[in-house]
């Protein structure tokens, strides 16, 4: 079964994303910030097939998390999608250049997440 990591400091958002991903057949793990997310990746190395990541989080933000993931060879191929309230083109460009594969602006719907993931899966 495909396994996804949901990283967001809002429990509500984590649960909403987890429900959508479970409906799509993913097994889901949650983390409340980038540091914790790295620990989860470490503890289950090589098993994740997707991570959805918020930008603004305490301890380690989403951009720092993406940079950390991309600088580690073990996770070079892990598809990363940012899901954030940041909606400026420059921020989007920064996230993509850091290694995000795609970007969803909040607020989102289940359909948006599903469509984006389908596209990510087909076009990668």
């Amino acid at each position: 079964m495909a396994k996804a990591l949901v990283v967001d400091d809002s429990k509500t958002i984590r649960n909403v994303l987890e429900r959508t991903l479970r409906e799509m057949g993913y097994e889901v793990r949650q983390a409340e910030d980038g540091r914790r997310a790295l620990e989860v990746l470490e503890s289950e190395a090589g098993e994740f097939t997707l991570a959805l990541v918020d930008w603004n989080m305490p301890v380690m933000n989403g951009l720092e998390f993406i940079q950390a993931v991309r600088s580690d060879r073990r996770w070079a191929g892990l598809p990363l999608m940012m899901v954030t309230t940041e909606t400026q083109i420059e921020q989007m460009r920064t996230a993509l250049e850091a290694g995000a594969n795609d970007y969803v602006m909040k607020p989102f719907t289940d359909d948006i997440i599903r469509d984006k993931l389908k596209l990510l899966e087909i076009w990668r």
Binding site: M92, R93, A95, D115, W123
Partner: peptide
């Protein structure tokens, strides 16, 4: 909402 659906972010940018 419309650009969030289906459009890869690299094309949006």
């Amino acid at each position: 909402l419309e650009v969030n659906r289906g459009l890869p972010a690299q094309y949006l940018v």
